[in-house]
């Protein structure tokens, strides 16, 4: 019985084994595999597979998926290179156009020039309006009034967008000149103006201490010691004036940083106002 079973298996298994008649590397099978990888979120390998069959199967969906794949990988320039090869008649041209604008925003971080607009459906038009308006936050000067700018967005987003607008065009910067002048008049006050109270009070105490030591030693005719304290006090005083200007600059750099981070987080959360595409269900 055992022997019969072994012999049966021995004959059947080779017959059913993988054979060369099945072509795993046919374009159709590669596409199926690439689709699977794309749905699994493995964009790097999905794009590689799609690229290998792109010349064999001309398909708008494949081109658009390659564009999305590159964009998801952060390869925005590659993504836009694919868009440049899109046919104007393609059903994905308008979607690709929107994605290309998002890629430009990521690469160049600047406002859009007024672009030649393809025909959009109402959803795409809304996305375009929002994306175009938000790009203004990368410009040096606003080209729309705040009311007009904010009105483009949904009600839920208007507060955030309004805050971002204010942060960009009326940033709560601290004046470097004022910080320096304040510290020149009252040591440490420039730092306090910038919000660094601990540093400001320390500077006031240190400069005051050296000034008192210098005065006291001059009064007691200890001229050498008095001059040493005068010199040190002068360095601390000048260093504090300099440091107050530097602190104001750092404060302003923090405002710029927070604005950029806030804007990026908001745009990522909103997927740059682009429609979601589901190719997997």
């Amino acid at each position: 019985m055992k022997l019969t079973l072994i012999i049966t298996l021995f004959f059947f298994i080779p017959n059913l084994a993988q054979n060369s008649h099945f072509n795993f590397h046919s374009p159709e099978n590669k596409k199926k595999f690439a689709d699977y990888l794309f749905c699994e979120g493995d964009y790097l390998r999905a794009v590689e597979e799609y690229e290998s069959i792109r010349d064999l199967i001309r398909n708008d969906t494949i081109d658009f998926k390659i564009m999305l794949g590159y964009s998801s990988l952060g390869l925005f320039e590659e993504s836009n290179k694919i868009f440049k090869q899109f046919n104007y008649e393609s059903v994905f041209y308008s979607d690709g156009y929107l994605y290309s604008l998002r890629n430009i925003l990521q690469i160049e971080q600047r406002e859009f020039d007024y672009p030649g607009i393809p025909s959009f459906d109402p959803t795409q038009w809304k996305s375009f309006r929002k994306l175009f308006s938000i790009s203004m936050l990368y410009a040096d000067e606003p080209f729309e009034s705040k009311e007009k700018f904010v009105s483009v967005f949904e009600e839920d987003d208007q507060i955030t967008v309004s805050l971002l607008y204010d942060y960009k065009f009326n940033p709560p910067y601290k004046s470097e000149l004022l910080a320096g002048v304040l510290s020149a008049v009252i040591p440490g006050s420039g730092k306090m103006y910038v919000g660094e109270w601990g540093d400001g009070i320390t500077a006031l105490l240190v400069t005051g201490l050296f000034a008192f030591l210098a005065y006291d030693n001059f009064r007691a005719d200890h001229n050498t010691r008095a001059w040493i304290f005068t010199g040190l006090g002068a360095f601390f005083y000048a260093g504090n004036v300099y440091g107050s200007v530097a602190s104001a600059q750092i404060f302003n750099a923090r405002i710029n940083f927070e604005f950029k981070e806030g804007l990026n987080l908001f745009l990522q959360h909103k997927n740059y106002f682009l429609p979601e595409y589901d190719f997997c269900n």
Partner: peptide, 15 residues
């Protein structure tokens, strides 16, 4: 030197 004296003051800040 100015940068250093500013740093030294910040170093003395206990908070």
């Amino acid at each position: 030197m100015l940068m250093f004296f500013d740093r030294f003051t910040r170093d003395m800040n206990l908070y």
